[in-house]
């Protein structure tokens, strides 16, 4: 099934009402790892709204991206509790290990490194998440170890 079919399926899942624009785009993001111009055009036409509105929504929300993200998204929590307990050093170490800047994708397309404001696991600060898994009490070396072990994959 190609991108066009997958998007058609997503559109079919939601009611054809502009209020579901964000919901549809979030689903496309999850399925495709990004939102292409083609996808935005299709959604605008389907919902009967302007392309500029779809584009404005895509550029406003952080969860949506126009660039293809990695297959796995590693998120370093930079919430206040994690900040206090040293999340900046963890982020730096992961940037070094993955040889990318925050927001970037590794050369092999495997990982995207991002920050997240708070994942609500403050007791275990600093926290790193990958997919639905959270890893607590992180430190630079522990993060590097987990990455090497493939725990984030």
């Amino acid at each position: 099934m190609g991108e066009i079919d997958r998007i058609a399926e997503i559109l079919h899942k939601h009611r054809q009402d502009p209020r579901y624009l964000l919901a549809i785009l979030l689903d496309i993001q999850e399925s495709e790892n990004y939102i292409s111009i083609e996808a935005m055009r299709t959604v605008a036409e389907h919902l009967g709204i302007s392309e500029s509105r779809v584009f404005a929504v895509v550029t406003f929300y952080r969860a949506l991206s126009q660039k293809k993200k990695g297959r796995r998204i590693i998120r370093v929590c930079t919430g206040t509790a994690c900040h206090l307990r040293g999340s900046a050093a963890v982020l730096q170490e992961l940037e070094k290990q993955l040889a990318i800047k925050t927001g970037g994708v590794t050369e092999d397309g495997e990982y995207t490194l991002e920050t997240v404001n708070c994942v609500g696991a403050c007791a275990l600060a600093p926290v790193v998440t990958s997919g639905e898994n959270s890893f607590g009490r992180m430190g630079p070396s522990k993060a590097a170890e987990l990455l090497a072990e493939g725990a984030f994959a």
């Binding site: 302007s50 392309e51 500029s52 509105r53 779809v54 584009f55 404005a56 550029t59």
Partner: peptide, 25 residues
């Protein structure tokens, strides 16, 4: 016509047509 919108957010918010490209709208 709705050919342009304020896109992006925060300090980077700016006016643009969809995809920052020429538009039929």
């Amino acid at each position: 016509t709705k050919a342009i919108e304020l896109v992006g957010r925060g300090f980077d918010r700016h006016v643009a047509p969809p995809y920052e490209l020429e538009t039929d709208a």
